[in-house]
């Protein structure tokens, strides 16, 4: 019996893993990663001559509903045109029958790797920027349901993108659909009720199914209470990310950073009761903005000492100038005697 050389085995393995892109406009370049249901390849769009990322359903993991789920993810992404959400360019089926969609190739680091170099203030400002695309998605009636540092990409120019909308859910009768019912009739984004892509028969998460990431999953997600999930589910995950970035990951002690008001924001966002949370991610972001501006936050009632300290911090230059003036006056009084 003759064994194949290692190089040949490695070559065969690579060939087996490489998606069949024959007859398409894409040429596979590099394997980028693997998710729960799909693999992601860096490819070149031969017509537009640009690098793209192809998310392709894993052949070994194909089941009846996964192609529908991946296609739903593509449709959701196509519906969310925002600088903070990775744009989808194309979707379809490869010659080997695997469902795929093509999106912008984002170069950068995930949030968990990126924040190590940032101070607390910069981390919070970054978090505020993450809130923008999330709020946009909510306004379109879509909740992410898998928000976590690993799903947030910070590009090489500091741009923030929310990735992996594979578990996203379209909230039926969303405020957006109610506010702008004509949008779907005029070529705009289809609503959950009207579009076949969102019809309950195609793909919906079954009640009782637990989807998400432990640590960032809201209690209603952990219970599998799919019908209860709404934008406050993402608010919980956002609070969990805030909690994550408040911890000093650069030290082994994992000690907490930030004052009480910031932890109060975190606690409110991560309240086990949905009613106790911020009702929107904008509210949470506004509270973060108030904290950054040394203003009182809605989540925390400060005592008089904390209030004085905050006011001094907010007007520290003016306080220093007045103190310098008073000090000078005292010196004059002392030396004029």
């Amino acid at each position: 019996m003759k064994f194949l050389p290692d190089q040949v085995v490695a070559r065969l393995q690579t060939e087996l893993q490489t998606p069949d892109l024959s007859g398409t406009r894409y040429r596979a370049l590099k394997f980028l990663g693997q998710g729960g249901m799909a693999i992601v390849w860096l490819a070149e769009d031969s017509i537009l001559r640009r690098p793209v990322a192809l998310k392709i359903l894993s052949a070994e993991k194909s089941s009846a509903d996964l192609p529908a789920r991946l296609m739903q993810e593509a449709v959701i992404l196509a519906r969310l045109e925002h600088p903070g959400i990775v744009p989808v360019h194309d979707a379809g089926t490869l010659p080997d029958g695997c469902t795929f969609y093509c999106m912008k190739h984002v170069e950068g680091q995930t949030l968990d790797h990126y924040i190590g170099r940032l101070g607390l203030r910069q981390r919070l400002q970054l978090l505020q920027r993450i809130a923008e695309p999330l709020a946009f998605a909510h306004s379109r009636g879509i909740i992410h349901r898998d928000l976590k540092p690993a799903n947030i990409m910070v590009g090489s120019f500091g741009e923030v993108l929310i990735m992996d909308w594979g578990l996203a859910r379209v909230i039926e009768n969303s405020a957006a659909a109610q506010q702008n019912p004509a949008a779907s009739d005029e070529g705009g984004p289809p609503t959950a009720e009207r579009s076949p892509a969102f019809s309950p028969g195609l793909y919906t998460t079954v009640h009782g199914t637990v989807l998400g990431t432990p640590g960032f999953m809201a209690p209603e997600q952990e219970r599998g209470d799919v019908n209860a999930t709404d934008q406050r589910t993402d608010v919980f995950a956002f609070g969990a990310i805030l909690n994550y970035i408040l911890r000093d990951n650069t030290t082994s002690s994992d000690r907490e950073r930030g004052p009480r008001s910031l932890h109060a924001i975190c606690r409110k966002a991560m309240s086990s009761e949905m009613a106790g949370r911020y009702s929107t991610v904008q509210e949470l972001s506004a509270d973060l903005g108030k904290y950054l501006d040394n203003l009182p936050v809605s989540a925390y009632r400060e005592n008089i000492v904390e209030r004085a300290a905050r006011l001094i911090a907010r007007h520290r230059v003016a306080v220093v100038l007045v103190l310098a003036y008073l000090f000078m006056r005292v010196l004059f009084v002392l030396f004029s005697r």
Partner: peptide
């Protein structure tokens, strides 16, 4: 002191 008042 006058200059400091102006500065403030």
């Amino acid at each position: 002191p006058g200059a400091m008042v102006g500065l403030i």
